[in-house]
Design a protein around this nucleic acid. Structure first.
Lengths: 194, 194
DNA sequence: TGAAAAAATGAATGTTTTATTCATTTTTTC
DNA sequence: GAAAAAATGAATAAAACATTCATTTTTTCA
């Protein structure tokens, strides 16, 4: 038998356990037990509980971001690239219930009021992706001549709002519906009128 | 203002919190916070955390049993009384998600393997109710001349099995359906043939 | 109103739980 | 089969938690 466990397996399991109980209520032992390994073994992969949590969150996010990158990789048309980035990104997250639970629950990831953010890399990576698409669109004169930095951040806020909104349970309209509606509006504003 | 809180309010809240996190993962402070009172105040009503839990469970059960008693109170016909006891009892429990969560999760309430039961009063009260209905039915010659004690325990086991079964998630048939099916069978066996 | 009784508070304390380490054992590598 | 890597879990340190109680606040009732 190869190694009894692997980083991927550890973080996948930890994601589920942290999602179920939250950081405070999960014991390191809970995760070890779920993995069927000794507690000490976990410490060969992480420095401490906090580190385990952070690596776990980053694992989830990275996996999500990778999927989005792959989804837009082959696409030539900027407009479509923008749409796919937005819709698939949203869809993949909706599917990953554990990651979503954590993103929604942990106020240090997407704070509702301004304060220190725990994982700035997440925002940077996502905003950069948006920027690169916007830049391409502006250059190709498909999008209006917008302020790329500001628009990227604006769009990212819109995105995050919907991640959190999922939890707030809107009445009447489904969040999915509202998201697509807002997306259309933004895209419309973005496109150069012929 | 009258007292800031009351036993009923405390146990109602505690029921929800214990149901959400389980005994180990809930802190006494969690319940106090939810009630918007200080931790120390709780100790005016209960001896310790274990006592709080036990009183909470008993509060939930008592409320359930009272509802069942009230539901059958005015009924004359034994057969109908039996049916109402069984169906309403099951229905009330299905509605009380917090109580059900605790009954299903805590193995010391309805153990699947023989061991010391934590709340014997629960079983005694329920079995006694069943016995009293059976006794009346036999006396009135509506039910067959069964062994009342044994049949009461048998029926109670059937009942408990379905409380737990709810959790096991059967495929195909709904638990509700299966319960009513079994109930019909038992009732049929119980009734004297004309 | 105001003095006694009842209720509520939350900081302080001691116990329990939990995180973390590391000497030892087991498994893998070559 | 010897060295290196991985895994273990009992032991220890650190943190979380339950519980107490001296003090404050609120209610009661003359």
């Amino acid at each position: 038998m190869a190694q009894k466990t692997s980083p991927d397996k550890i973080f996948e399991t930890a994601l589920a356990v942290f999602a179920k109980y939250g950081f405070r209520r999960t014991r390191v032992e809970d995760i070890a037990t779920e993995l069927d390994i000794a507690t000490g073994t976990l410490y060969r992969y992480v420095k401490n509980k906090k580190d385990l949590y952070e690596k776990t969150v980053m694992f989830g996010i990275k996996r999500w971001q990778t999927k989005v990158f792959e989804a837009i990789a082959g696409i030539e048309d900027v407009t479509e690239q923008f749409i796919v980035m937005a819709k698939k990104g949203y869809g993949y997250l909706a599917d990953d219930v554990h990651l979503r639970q954590i993103l929604i629950t942990d106020p240090s990831i997407f704070p509702l009021t301004p304060r220190k953010v725990r994982f700035p890399e997440i925002d940077i990576a996502s905003i950069n992706l948006i920027k690169s698409i916007l830049k391409k669109g502006v250059k190709k004169k498909v999008f209006c001549n917008i302020d790329i930095n500001m628009t990227a951040e604006l769009f990212y806020s819109f995105y995050v709002m919907f991640i959190i909104k999922t939890y707030i349970k809107s009445d009447g309209h489904s969040t999915q519906q509202m998201f697509e509606n807002g997306l259309e509006l933004i895209l419309n504003g973005l496109l150069r009128k012929a």
